[in-house]
């Protein structure tokens, strides 16, 4: 397997509380990897260890390695902004920045490519809005405040904003949990379209969504990985008791 992200012996503590214990797992290049498990099992913590969001909380302690293409993102001297440019995040709640629709998409580009001229920027913005399937809805009002969009549109805007800095990896932290069913479908559709080009890692607590999206599954329980493997195999023929119980809806 061609591992895009390789986690080795990762431990995470929040204060004195162990959130992740001895996590070792490989995430394959391209395709959608779904991290699932009951709430509080450490799914989101694992996800946020990939773009170094865990350190935003200063009581967090981390040990172990998370390597993207063989380079540990926690190695000393690594530029955290470069990691985050490479590893995009679609948050749980859609968060439009308090600026226009255009500026939301252009936000990351203005930071990473400050010399991009206005017309090049406009072309890029249109491109990523199209990729996120939002262009036709907002083409006439790019200067409108982004917060005026519906919540489902905002999440697609966030997708466009994330894609605009050209990441290789997209992380999704329950990206549809705040959305209505139709908007959720929309996002899921987009993720399926994009999986040919991006390594996508999604956290979800709904089994059905996991089944719809997953090429590869990581099942977690109480801060540990119980089982990981190709979706087909894990859903039809789980090896561990815990996984069977979870799939059967015992907890």
């Amino acid at each position: 397997m061609d591992a895009h992200i390789s986690v080795q012996n990762l431990h995470v503590w929040y204060g004195n509380l162990a959130a992740l214990t001895a996590i070792s797992v490989d995430i394959p290049r391209h395709g959608i990897t779904v991290i699932m498990g009951p709430s509080g099992c450490g799914k989101t913590t694992l996800l946020k260890s990939f773009n170094r969001f865990l350190e935003l909380n200063d009581t967090t302690r981390i040990s172990g390695t998370v390597a993207v293409d063989g380079h540990d993102v926690y190695a000393p001297g690594v530029d955290v902004t470069a990691v985050r440019k490479r590893v995009g995040l679609l948050a749980q709640r859609p968060t439009a920045l308090p600026m226009s629709i255009f500026e939301n998409v252009a936000y990351g580009m203005r930071i990473h490519q400050p010399h991009l001229d206005k017309s090049a920027l406009a072309i890029q913005v249109q491109h990523y809005l199209e990729v996120a399937g939002l262009w036709h809805e907002v083409a006439q009002r790019l200067d409108a405040p982004a917060t005026a969009l519906s919540i489902g549109q905002q999440q697609r805007l966030c997708l466009a904003r994330g894609l605009a800095v050209e990441p290789e990896i997209i992380l999704g932290d329950e990206p549809t949990s705040a959305l209505d069913p139709i908007s959720s479908r929309h996002i899921e559709q987009k993720l399926l379209e994009l999986k040919q080009r991006y390594t996508t890692v999604i956290v979800t607590h709904t089994l059905r969504q996991a089944k719809r999206l997953a090429d590869y599954v990581i099942f977690m329980y109480l801060g540990e990985i119980v089982e990981a493997g190709p979706a087909q195999q894990l859903f039809t023929n789980p090896q561990q008791e815990r996984t069977k119980e979870y799939l059967a809806g015992v907890f």
Partner: peptide, 21 residues
């Protein structure tokens, strides 16, 4: 906090997040 994280997530530094958002 979501606002800060939205900016940090695309690779902005803290100061850029403060200045621009």
């Amino acid at each position: 906090n979501d606002l800060r994280q939205a900016s940090l997530a695309v690779g902005a530094t803290r100061w850029e997040t403060i200045w621009r958002v």
